[in-house]
Protein backbone atom coordinates (compact mmCIF):
# COMPACT_ATOMS: atom_id res chain seq x y z
CA UNK A 1 0.00 0.00 0.00
CA UNK A 2 2.73 2.40 0.99
CA UNK A 3 4.90 1.78 -2.05
CA UNK A 4 1.98 2.33 -4.42
CA UNK A 5 1.21 5.71 -2.87
CA UNK A 6 4.80 6.85 -3.28
CA UNK A 7 4.85 5.71 -6.90
CA UNK A 8 1.74 7.76 -7.68
CA UNK A 9 3.15 10.90 -6.06
CA UNK A 10 6.38 10.43 -7.97
CA UNK A 11 4.58 10.12 -11.29
CA UNK A 12 2.43 13.16 -10.55
CA UNK A 13 5.51 15.23 -9.80
CA UNK A 14 7.10 14.15 -13.05
CA UNK A 15 3.97 15.13 -14.98
CA UNK A 16 3.89 18.49 -13.25
CA UNK A 17 7.41 19.17 -14.42
CA UNK A 18 6.55 18.36 -18.02
CA UNK A 19 3.41 20.45 -18.14
CA UNK A 20 4.39 23.58 -16.28
CA UNK A 21 7.93 24.73 -15.76
CA UNK A 22 10.19 23.88 -18.64
CA UNK A 23 9.33 24.35 -22.33
CA UNK A 24 12.31 22.31 -23.45
CA UNK A 25 11.13 19.40 -21.40
CA UNK A 26 7.71 19.57 -23.01
CA UNK A 27 9.25 19.61 -26.48
CA UNK A 28 11.50 16.73 -25.65
CA UNK A 29 8.63 14.77 -24.22
CA UNK A 30 6.60 15.41 -27.35
CA UNK A 31 9.29 14.19 -29.73
CA UNK A 32 10.83 11.39 -27.73
CA UNK A 33 9.33 10.28 -24.46
CA UNK A 34 12.45 8.31 -23.49
CA UNK A 35 14.60 11.45 -23.40
CA UNK A 36 12.42 13.17 -20.81
CA UNK A 37 14.47 11.72 -17.99
CA UNK A 38 17.76 12.76 -19.54
CA UNK A 39 16.91 16.45 -20.07
CA UNK A 40 16.81 17.34 -16.40
CA UNK A 41 16.26 16.01 -12.92
CA UNK A 42 12.72 15.55 -11.67
CA UNK A 43 11.71 18.49 -9.46
CA UNK A 44 11.20 16.39 -6.35
CA UNK A 45 14.79 15.16 -6.35
CA UNK A 46 17.88 16.16 -4.43
CA UNK A 47 19.59 16.74 -7.75
CA UNK A 48 16.89 19.20 -8.84
CA UNK A 49 17.19 21.05 -5.55
CA UNK A 50 20.96 21.21 -5.69
CA UNK A 51 21.27 22.19 -9.34
CA UNK A 52 18.06 23.93 -10.42
CA UNK A 53 16.88 25.56 -7.18
CA UNK A 54 20.39 26.07 -5.85
CA UNK A 55 21.50 24.45 -2.60
CA UNK A 56 23.84 27.19 -1.42
CA UNK A 57 24.18 30.89 -0.76
CA UNK A 58 27.38 32.88 -0.36
CA UNK A 59 28.61 35.51 2.07
CA UNK A 60 31.12 38.33 2.16
CA UNK A 61 34.24 38.01 4.30
CA UNK A 62 33.40 37.81 8.02
CA UNK A 63 29.70 38.56 7.25
CA UNK A 64 26.52 36.58 7.71
CA UNK A 65 23.93 38.98 6.29
CA UNK A 66 22.05 37.73 3.23
CA UNK A 67 22.63 39.46 -0.10
CA UNK A 68 19.76 40.07 -2.53
CA UNK A 69 20.97 37.13 -4.57
CA UNK A 70 21.15 34.92 -1.49
CA UNK A 71 17.60 35.91 -0.52
CA UNK A 72 16.40 35.09 -4.06
CA UNK A 73 17.91 31.59 -3.88
CA UNK A 74 16.57 31.02 -0.35
CA UNK A 75 13.09 32.11 -1.52
CA UNK A 76 13.26 29.47 -4.23
CA UNK A 77 14.43 26.95 -1.62
CA UNK A 78 11.47 27.86 0.63
CA UNK A 79 9.08 27.33 -2.27
CA UNK A 80 10.68 23.97 -3.03
CA UNK A 81 10.35 22.91 0.60
CA UNK A 82 6.66 23.90 0.42
CA UNK A 83 6.24 21.73 -2.66
CA UNK A 84 8.09 18.82 -1.06
CA UNK A 85 6.59 18.56 2.41
CA UNK A 86 8.25 15.25 3.30
CA UNK A 87 11.73 16.64 2.96
CA UNK A 88 14.00 17.82 5.78
CA UNK A 89 17.37 19.50 5.55
CA UNK A 90 20.57 20.22 7.42
CA UNK A 91 21.77 23.76 6.82
CA UNK A 92 25.57 23.69 6.89
CA UNK A 93 27.43 26.90 7.65
CA UNK A 94 30.98 27.21 6.33
CA UNK A 95 33.81 29.71 6.43
CA UNK A 96 36.91 30.28 4.34
CA UNK A 97 40.40 29.42 5.65
CA UNK A 98 41.29 33.03 6.48
CA UNK A 99 40.05 32.90 10.07
CA UNK A 100 40.92 31.00 13.23
CA UNK A 101 39.30 27.60 13.74
CA UNK A 102 37.05 28.42 16.69
CA UNK A 103 35.95 31.82 15.40
CA UNK A 104 35.11 30.18 12.09
CA UNK A 105 32.95 27.58 13.85
CA UNK A 106 30.99 30.44 15.40
CA UNK A 107 30.86 32.30 12.07
CA UNK A 108 29.62 29.17 10.30
CA UNK A 109 26.89 28.89 12.93
CA UNK A 110 25.85 32.48 12.22
CA UNK A 111 25.65 31.79 8.49
CA UNK A 112 23.72 28.55 8.88
CA UNK A 113 21.32 30.34 11.21
CA UNK A 114 20.88 33.27 8.80
CA UNK A 115 19.86 30.89 6.00
CA UNK A 116 17.69 28.76 8.29
CA UNK A 117 15.92 31.79 9.77
CA UNK A 118 15.12 33.11 6.29
CA UNK A 119 13.62 29.77 5.28
CA UNK A 120 11.54 29.63 8.45
CA UNK A 121 10.26 33.16 7.98
CA UNK A 122 9.31 32.12 4.45
CA UNK A 123 7.08 29.33 5.64
CA UNK A 124 9.32 26.31 6.19
CA UNK A 125 8.53 24.60 9.47
CA UNK A 126 11.47 24.96 11.88
CA UNK A 127 11.31 21.29 12.78
CA UNK A 128 12.32 20.40 9.21
CA UNK A 129 15.57 22.37 9.35
CA UNK A 130 18.58 21.51 11.48
CA UNK A 131 21.77 23.53 11.28
CA UNK A 132 25.41 22.67 11.79
CA UNK A 133 28.63 24.62 11.47
CA UNK A 134 31.72 23.20 9.82
CA UNK A 135 33.81 26.34 10.22
CA UNK A 136 36.75 26.04 7.84
CA UNK A 137 36.86 22.23 8.08
CA UNK A 138 35.14 21.32 4.80
CA UNK A 139 36.09 23.73 2.01
CA UNK A 140 34.26 23.29 -1.32
CA UNK A 141 37.04 24.96 -3.31
CA UNK A 142 40.57 23.95 -2.39
CA UNK A 143 42.61 26.86 -3.67
CA UNK A 144 44.01 29.64 -1.53
CA UNK A 145 42.76 32.58 -3.58
CA UNK A 146 39.87 35.06 -3.49
CA UNK A 147 37.72 32.97 -5.84
CA UNK A 148 38.08 29.82 -3.75
CA UNK A 149 37.46 31.65 -0.50
CA UNK A 150 34.30 33.24 -1.95
CA UNK A 151 32.98 29.76 -2.81
CA UNK A 152 33.74 28.54 0.70
CA UNK A 153 31.93 31.31 2.60
CA UNK A 154 28.60 29.54 2.23
CA UNK A 155 25.48 28.07 3.75
CA UNK A 156 24.44 24.82 2.08
CA UNK A 157 21.09 23.09 2.48
CA UNK A 158 21.68 19.34 2.45
CA UNK A 159 18.25 17.83 1.87
CA UNK A 160 17.17 14.46 3.20
CA UNK A 161 14.12 12.38 2.43
CA UNK A 162 13.95 13.08 -1.29
CA UNK A 163 15.00 10.75 -4.13
CA UNK A 164 18.54 11.52 -5.20
CA UNK A 165 17.81 11.88 -8.93
Amino acid sequence: MKTITIAIIGAAALLAACSSSDDENVDAAATNSASTIQTGPAPNTVEYFNVVVGDRVFFDTDRHDLSTEAQFILSKQAQWFAENPGVTAVIEGHADERGTREYNLALGARRANAARSFLISNGVDASRLRSVSFGKERPAALGSDENSWAQNRRAVAVVEGAPSS
Partner: peptide
Protein backbone atom coordinates in the same frame (compact mmCIF):
# COMPACT_ATOMS: atom_id res chain seq x y z
CA UNK B 1 33.33 26.60 26.74
CA UNK B 2 31.34 28.26 24.00
CA UNK B 3 27.72 27.36 23.33
CA UNK B 4 26.22 28.41 20.03
CA UNK B 5 22.42 28.66 19.89
CA UNK B 6 20.43 30.11 16.98
CA UNK B 7 23.66 31.38 15.49
CA UNK B 8 24.79 33.25 18.59
CA UNK B 9 27.88 32.15 20.53
Amino acid sequence: LSLSQDGNT
